[in-house]
């Protein structure tokens, strides 16, 4: 069996201070089945690229996938970003390395033994003290194979660990949000008691909330918390929902999407 990754080609790329690779979890994909593929970015020390909301500065990293007719690609999973602070401003992004992964689905009539061209066009801004533009057109072939013969690639573990640390659901947190004089009071309860670390909120909608992450968290008992998240002075109208990612509750991060009452 030909490993998919052996066929990796980079057609055109301008990727200063980083390496960009198109990788797959498995050596092949079976007809009608799904598989994870992704773009992996490895950055030089001190350089960073940006989350979907880049925060106080930056540009969202963009990846467009191109697959043949009949093949489907799901929305990209954004790993939890980190705060990058400079000059009193806070941006949201990634340092060192990040895997932007997505799931593709092969059509039921995909022919076993065929090689399917897939490509990803990527655009980003990479900054340390200075900022530089980056772009890459990545392409590879995915082998359609018999399910029994598919093996994990050397990247499989990285797909697993990235998936493990993707933001988790807060469906049973009893979250509520109230707008009091342009400060969103977000309350809830972590279902397992956790000692609150420094709780950080990464707002998803650009310009909706203050990007400052040093939020006072009031932990009262048994995982109950209240967070105060200021509305951004750049918000064009009062937000009606608060969406984003929370960190500081143990090792995992959590996704929130809560309506705001006045």
């Amino acid at each position: 069996m030909i490993p998919v990754i052996a066929l990796l080609m980079i057609q055109t790329a301008s990727t200063p201070h980083c390496k960009v690779e198109l990788i797959a979890e498995n050596t092949a994909i079976a007809p009608g089945e799904s598989a994870r593929i992704g773009v992996r970015v490895t950055m030089d020390d001190g350089w960073h690229i940006y989350w979907k909301n880049p925060g106080d500065s930056g540009i969202p990293t963009k990846i467009n996938w191109n697959l043949p007719k009949g093949w489907k690609v799901s929305d990209m999973k954004w790993p939890t970003p980190q705060a990058i602070e400079a000059d009193g401003f806070t941006s949201f992004g990634y340092e060192k390395s990040v895997l932007f992964m997505t799931r593709i689905v092969a059509p039921k009539d995909a022919k076993i033994g065929s090689n399917i061209p897939i490509s990803a066009d990527m655009e980003f801004l990479i900054c340390k003290e200075s900022c530089l533009p980056g772009n890459a057109k990545l392409s590879t072939f995915l082998k359609v194979g018999d399910a029994a013969l598919i093996k994990p690639t050397k990247w499989a573990e990285e797909f697993e660990s990235t998936a493990l640390y993707l933001p988790r659901s807060t469906a049973n947190w009893n979250l509520s949000a109230e707008n009091i004089h342009n400060i969103i009071i977000l309350s809830g309860q972590h279902p397992d008691y956790v000692q609150l670390g420094e709780v950080k909120f990464f707002g998803e909608d650009p310009g909706a909330f203050d990007n400052s992450l040093h939020l006072p968290a009031v932990s009262r008992s048994a995982g109950i918390f209240t967070l105060n998240i200021p509305v951004s002075p750049y918000a064009s109208k009062p937000p009606t929902r608060i969406k984003g990612v929370l960190t500081g509750f143990g090792t995992h991060s959590y996704e929130i999407n809560v309506p705001i009452t006045n």
Binding site: P54, S57, G58, L125, E129, S130, P206, G207, S236
Partner: peptide
């Protein structure tokens, strides 16, 4: 208002 985008001011 809108969230400004671009390089951070140096």
């Amino acid at each position: 208002t809108s969230q400004p985008y671009g390089c951070g001011v140096k």
